[in-house]
């Protein structure tokens, strides 16, 4: 028995080291909940920010045009038409995906979506949605996309993307991180306009009710905010629910085969178009 047992062990060790060697092979999946991804499919927010930094504003002036879509969760058939429509938009600078990239919070789903969206001519940016938090999704999102809260400035416009999926944290009073949001909104150096982006809007039941007022107040106090964009409810709408002059725009889901085309100019001027594809 000694010899076969040793050869068994040797086989096992060979197998394990072979697995480590070829761990970049996507087929060899350790768990659907693992967060492994090839380098080209990791840190996508950083990669897209680097692309954006190299890209002059296509309008060549003060005007900024970007697109907003959301909830790509398990609608892979709709992504190719979405990408080809977006690639035909003139002067488009970037695309924002308003969360629920995945349905089950699996890394492979996020990489499938990236496989489609990387065909965009322009960089794209995501905010985390509630479905991206399920299972090990939060860790997968951080590995594949990046931080849960982040901001960047382009063409004088500061985009602030906040994790507002309070229910996924059991309404712990910490999400959204309002102090962080206030800090981002207060930093106006070189910023002419501000755009807040989240997945769950503050008027939805999946938003932490203990933070609704403080989120809304933070936006109302922001000096240069144009509007708040959100996904989640799969229903387009423009409203000022808190009567504080803050405009909340709910976007279309990928399933609805429409997206928003937003053109910003001046301080708070904007044009909103719904594009079907």
């Amino acid at each position: 028995m000694l010899l076969p047992f040793r050869s068994y062990l040797r086989l096992g060790l060979t197998l394990a080291s072979a697995a480590l060697l070829i761990s970049s092979c996507e087929l060899l999946e350790f768990s659907p909940n693992d967060v492994r991804a090839p380098d080209a499919q990791r840190d996508l927010t950083r990669q897209n920010l680097e692309r954006l930094a190299q890209q002059p504003n296509p309008t060549g002036g003060d005007t900024l045009r970007f697109a907003f879509t959301a909830d790509s969760q398990r609608y892979y058939d709709e992504l190719d038409p979405l990408v080809s429509s977006l690639n035909q938009q003139r002067n488009l600078a970037l695309v924002i995906v308003g969360g629920d990239i995945s349905d089950f919070g699996l890394g492979r789903e996020m990489r499938w979506v990236n496989g489609k969206l990387k065909q965009l001519r322009v960089p794209y940016f995501t905010v985390i949605g509630n479905h991206d938090h399920v299972g090990n999704g939060r860790a997968a999102y951080q590995e594949i996309f990046g931080p849960l809260n982040y901001s960047f400035t382009y063409a004088g416009t500061r985009f602030i993307l906040t994790d507002t999926n309070g229910r996924e944290y059991g309404f712990n009073g910490q999400v959204p991180n309002v102090p962080w949001l206030q800090q981002q909104l207060a930093d106006t150096v070189g910023v002419r306009r501000q755009v807040a982006i989240c997945h769950v809007p503050p008027f939805d039941g999946d938003f932490d009710p203990s933070l609704t007022t403080s989120y809304a107040r933070a936006l109302a106090a922001a000096p240069r905010l144009v509007f708040n964009l959100s996904g989640h409810i799969d229903k387009f709408g423009v409203s000022q629910p808190y009567n504080d002059n803050v405009t909340y725009i709910s976007g279309y889901s990928v399933e609805q085969r429409q997206y928003l085309l937003l053109t910003l100019w001046g301080d708070k001027e904007y044009k909103l178009e719904s594009i079907a594809y």
Binding site: G12, L27, L28, Y76, D77, L79, F104, W112
Partner: peptide, 23 residues
Amino acid sequence: SLLPNTKGLSLGQILTLGLGVKV
């Protein structure tokens, strides 16, 4: 994920491979 997405996903994308030894 594959079932309702015959155009957007392919069978190859949903496969996993396992390798093993048995005594």
